[in-house]
Amino acid sequence: MQRIINDPSLVVEDMLKGFVMVHKDIIHVHLKNPRVIISNAAKNQKKVGIVTGGGSGHKPAFIGYAGKNMVDAVAVGEIFSSPTANSFYDAIVEVEQGMGVACLYGNYAGDNMNVKMASMMAKDDNITVKTVVANDDVASAKKEDSEKRRGVAGEILMWKVGGAKAATGASLDEVIDAAQKAIDNTRSVGVGLGPCTIPANGKPNFSIKEGTMEFGIGHHGEPGIRIDKLASAKEIAKEMYNLIINDLPFQSEDEVVVLISGLGATPLMEQYILFNEIENLLNADNIKIFKAYVGNYFTSLEMNGITLTIMKLDDELKECIRMEVESVGLIQIGE
């Protein structure tokens, strides 16, 4: 395993120390729980608190999205493993300001259970917690079973919308509705070209044969829909695009956000090349790009691959996407 680390079982601890120091102008660590990262802006404004959390190894997700007008507090888990209920609870308590807390997270068994337990603990403290569970990964289950689908890079857009809505002073229900609408209008799909290794395991736990790709791969290397021959960017774009566009479905004249994220080891170059192909396809279908994000926004350690996320907009969502943001993973300057 070619890595610059110390003890493989302490990578999250070691990483957090560095992260907190580098970004002290944007975030800080919870006084009592080193597995909770809090936005410095969290208490500047009376508003609904926004909490998320998830396994580590997805940098800049999740902690990179704590910041002004995004997420207020993040519970941090081990590599690819849900944070404890306790950490979700501490995050919730920390950002509650009397208006309730929206916990916006991804649909994984561990996260579901830990958030559920944390919410029950918070309820005992008279804190209202409502949740939105991201399920944007089209390839992770059939449309009929969409409640089983996983959350992937679309979570970023859910946080963006929820965070922006909360910043307007909206009520908990309004924030939840906006975030739920965001994820309901968002679809993602990933392709994997090379595996990653969990440091504590020391070897890749899946493999992708040279010349092939896993179409529909999950965020932790979960097998996709099928194994395809590695095709050109143009052909890959078409497959990914069709799967997404037909699922919602998106229509002519829609305005959308396009988010392309590398999974870790894929050069930005390839991400822009894929974006270029997606743009051509959207143009051909007369769907307009309102805002595009391309970069390593939601990774899976050093996996080689790319996810494509498209979100359909209405006026409310557009306003939320437009809002300025200042987090480690996403900075957007107001117009």
């Binding site: 396994g55 888990g77 081990e78 493993s81 849900s82 944070p83 404890t84 209920a85 306790n86 950490s87 994984y108 068994a109 561990g110 259970m113 830990n114 559920k116 337990m117």
Partner: peptide, 15 residues
């Protein structure tokens, strides 16, 4: 398991 482990095993076996 509940407080310090997380994942799905923390809440499952913890409970």
């Amino acid at each position: 398991l509940l407080m310090d482990i997380g994942g799905s095993m923390g809440p499952i076996y913890g409970t």
